[in-house]
């Protein structure tokens, strides 16, 4: 089974985001693999271990720094890595990204594609499903359980829905987006980390993938970020003083008249 895992490198959620000239200042950011993608890597490794055969390839689109996210995947046990060079691609636009990734998936060949249900930076939750549509393969999103029958080329995926769960069956090849709860990602072992330098990370350009750069350039993007701004500073809290009965009365009045929540 040939499994592709798409990993996005995102700012660590602990990073204090700085805005400069209406855009996020990436220089001050600590980058990590998108946490939802970690479930995808783990699931791919478990499938390979369960089947006792197969190949797991970690792919990431972006500048050279994304190699760190790929190496993280390799240290966990993925077999190969691919960096798709991101220069000139509208990386904030899900459709542009999905277009490039679809071409990369076609070039790599696959039986299964896994990726996190969304990336924790922009939270679009679009790229995975768009990718599946572009490849014209079935997709199941926000999956918390996955079973495959490689011989029959089918699978079933569990999703959590309001007040219950549903199981969806699909044919392979397919695209699955992963949700917390699917598995417990492993730690990179020392052996895994030491093995990274023996593994290769291929570099693919848009030309290698046969993608017209103009079609995925910022000028062609369907989604454009006009401006980023930090949330307004939280106003100072108000402290009410007096007897409990008076405070309660005043609190109710403020909630009704000022906050207008009751």
């Amino acid at each position: 089974m040939n499994i592709l895992v798409f990993v996005k490198q995102v700012p660590d959620t602990e990073t204090r985001i700085q805005i400069q000239n209406g855009a996020v200042d990436t220089a001050s950011v600590k980058w990590v693999a998108n946490p939802y993608d970690e479930f995808a890597i783990e699931e791919a490794l478990r499938i390979r271990e369960r089947l006792g055969a197969g190949k797991v390839t970690v792919l990431s689109l972006g500048p050279d720094r994304v190699k760190e996210a790929i190496k993280y995947g390799l240290s966990l046990g993925a077999d190969e890595g691919v960096q798709v060079k991101g220069e000139g691609v509208a990386l904030d636009d899900p459709l542009s990204v999905a277009t490039v990734l679809a071409a990369a998936a076609t070039k790599a060949g696959f039986d299964l594609i896994l990726a996190g249900k969304q990336a924790v930076d922009m939270d679009h939750a679009q790229t995975g499903v768009m990718l599946a549509e572009l490849l014209d393969v079935p997709h199941v999103s926000v999956v918390v359980g996955l079973e495959l029958d490689p011989a029959a080329k089918t699978g079933s995926a569990k999703r959590e829905v309001e007040g219950g769960a549903e199981t969806v069956t699909f044919d392979l090849p397919a695209m699955i987006t992963t949700q917390k709860g699917l598995n417990e990602p492993r730690y990179a072992s020392l052996k895994g980390i030491m093995a990274v330098k023996k593994k290769t990370i291929a570099e693919w350009t848009l030309a290698d993938l046969g993608v017209d750069p103009a079609s995925v350039a910022p000028a062609a993007a369907r989604l454009r970020t006009l401006e980023a701004s930090p949330p307004p500073p939280r106003p100072a809290g108000k402290l009410l003083e007096g007897e409990p009965a008076e405070i309660a009365k005043e609190l109710v009045r403020l909630l009704r008249e000022e906050a207008k929540v009751i």
Binding site: E68, K71, S75, Y187, A188, S189, L190, I193, M194, V196
Partner: peptide, 14 residues
């Protein structure tokens, strides 16, 4: 080195 950082991060996470 990159490898040393990865090893430290695994220990840190654990």
């Amino acid at each position: 080195s990159e490898e040393e950082i990865l090893i430290r991060d695994t220990a840190r996470k654990f």
